[in-house]
Design a protein around this nucleic acid. Sequence first.
DNA 1: AAGCCTCCTGAACGACCGTTCATATTGGCC
DNA 2: GGCCAATATGAACGGTCGTTCAGGAGGCTT
Lengths: 220, 220
Amino acid sequence: MSKRKTVLADDEQTTVVAEREARPPVEAIRAAAFAQFAERGYPVVTVRDIMKACGLTQGALYNHFKSKDELLHDIIASTQGELERLCQQAVAGAGGDPRAELAAFVRVYVMRHCRLRIEALVANREIGWLDAARVADIRRSRRAIRDIVVTILRHGVERGVFDPPRVEGKHDLKAIAMALLDQCTHVSMWYGPGGDLTEEQMAKLYTDMALRVVGATPQA
Amino acid sequence: MSKRKTVLADDEQTTVVAEREARPPVEAIRAAAFAQFAERGYPVVTVRDIMKACGLTQGALYNHFKSKDELLHDIIASTQGELERLCQQAVAGAGGDPRAELAAFVRVYVMRHCRLRIEALVANREIGWLDAARVADIRRSRRAIRDIVVTILRHGVERGVFDPPRVEGKHDLKAIAMALLDQCTHVSMWYGPGGDLTEEQMAKLYTDMALRVVGATPQA
DNA sequence: AAGCCTCCTGAACGACCGTTCATATTGGCC
DNA sequence: GGCCAATATGAACGGTCGTTCAGGAGGCTT
């Protein structure tokens, strides 16, 4: 079995430096593991790979983590938790107008997925390797974020400032929320140094598109 | 290392039957491999797993495929090729109006990603395990599909029937095409038996959203 | 019946896996 | 200096991996 496969496009490898860091080893391990998972995917990255990348040997991992599994969960959970917090905060600071709330949400969400695109990519792609208990934790957080969007949409419809597309005369706000989130999440799959737009411009573009999708009336 | 992890949600396992099929062994192997890759992911599915699932032993694989790698490529390439063909055909049959073309494209694309969601999911998720030459082949096909969308958008703008959002006064049709495709592609990640909408309704909803995003004027 | 071709078996190969553990090394504190 | 706790080492363990290959089974042609 060849080991040299890559999961990112050729021009976007993260750099794996084999240097001994000044920071505490736990963080060096986290960082090295993250970089390797991003490049090659959890199941084919070995404990030996990770530890070599931060200048240690296999055994030392188990002074800091119970298992390779816990290490992955540690990485994903911190990314996901931070994302959920940012989203709540963005909506809370928007002053109650659904149009402003949606705009703030999309802006924060897209900017984060551009800036920390590798983190987002790992969190989305490697989640399946976690054991059942840990994966449930992450999925709860994702549902929470989706429900933030659904709530914004419902308020907007109730107040008459949104008019999203209907199927059979009725709204399916959950499906629309998923569509918006899918769109925004997956900028992390292709946004990068090669592109033409800055993070700000991406956020603006995606906000415009989202407001169009939900049929927002111009803001007062 | 535990092997029992799953990559799909709990209620959507594909069934792995351990029966000897009447069809030729090549196809039985393809089908078994596909089912296992979908459930558990390429790197953790072993050649022994695949062959046991169709009532054979490990060694027999190599009478039909050069390697496990070739087997995966075989599966992904056929899905991807078919998708590209369907997209071209849908656009060609739309009569030249960009609004009809976009609607036909989204409709076909979404319906296929709902109906053959597992196939799409495997093609999207496992592509990274292919070696460089094979992955390039698949990526070419994806770019071709993206370019179909870009072309539709450009025609629509030129004829004045589309008015997509601008950044700094200019269109970035590639980014918009990617956003639309991401949205449509990833219905395969969550659409399923649990949902409220039929494939037809999903296609309609996504078509509406796409036309809104590009700012389509009502059709004559 | 004999030869041949196709396909399958299952042992074997060499490599690598996650994890453990006895042993060594380190750096702070008395 | 001596001591202790924290941390690193690297051999070793029991497995599993993809792949190879000598041999066998079954059917077709001659």
